[in-house]
Amino acid sequence: MVVKRVYFLAHGGMVQGVGFRYFTQKRAVEYKLSGWVRNTDDNKVEGEAQGEETGIKDFLKDVDKGPRGAHVVRLDKEDRDVVEGENGFHVRRGGP
């Protein structure tokens, strides 16, 4: 089992106000991932997800599509260091 962590940033015409963070959290739980997601101040959605490589891959495909009503123009991804002992996938409020 290869554990991986990835940072993601969804750019789009419509990624806020459409339930994107909760959609992302639901998908992360389905794929047994940990991490977080939040809206940015510049109308994007960012987060980090950690788990098995296959789960991460499927999760990112879902995030790239987004929930119904969303329009993701681009999804940036960047590998990050694994965080030991992280539990759950959380929706955070606001920017950094």
Score class of each variant (00 low, 15 high):
T40R: 06
A49V: 12
T54A: 12
K61Y: 06
N43D: 12
D64K: 13
K65T: 15
F59G: 00
Q25Y: 00
G85A: 09
R38A: 12
Y22V: 10
E84H: 14
G55K: 08
L75Q: 10
Y22I: 05
S34F: 00
V37M: 03
K61N: 12
E53D: 07
L33P: 02
R74A: 14
V45L: 05
E48Y: 02
E78M: 09
H90A: 13
N43L: 10
R80Y: 03
K32L: 09
E84L: 15
H90F: 11
D76Y: 11
D41A: 15
Y22D: 15
K61W: 02
R68N: 07
F59N: 00
A49M: 03
V73L: 08
G85M: 06
E84D: 15
D76K: 11
F59I: 00
D81M: 09
Q25L: 07
E52A: 15
H71N: 14
A49T: 06
F23P: 01
E53L: 05
G47H: 02
N43A: 13
F23V: 04
R38I: 10
W36P: 06
W36L: 10
Y22L: 13
K26M: 08
D62S: 12
Q25K: 15
K65G: 07
W36Y: 14
F23S: 02
G51S: 01
T24L: 04
Y31L: 12
D62I: 04
V45A: 04
V73K: 13
G66Y: 01
E84Y: 11
G88D: 10
D62K: 13
G35H: 05
D58N: 12
K32Q: 14
A28L: 02
A49L: 05
R27H: 13
G47Q: 01
D64M: 06
D42F: 07
Y31D: 05
N39H: 10
N39V: 10
R74Y: 05
R38D: 05
D81I: 08
I56D: 01
Q50P: 06
E78A: 08
Q25P: 01
K77R: 15
K57S: 13
D42M: 08
Q25A: 15
V63P: 00
E53H: 01
D58I: 04
V37I: 05
H90P: 02
A28G: 10
T54I: 07
V29W: 06
K44M: 09
E52C: 07
N87V: 14
L33Q: 05
F89E: 01
K65N: 11
F89A: 02
V63G: 00
K26S: 11
G85H: 04
E78R: 14
K32C: 05
E78G: 04
T40G: 04
S34R: 06
V82E: 06
E52K: 14
R80V: 11
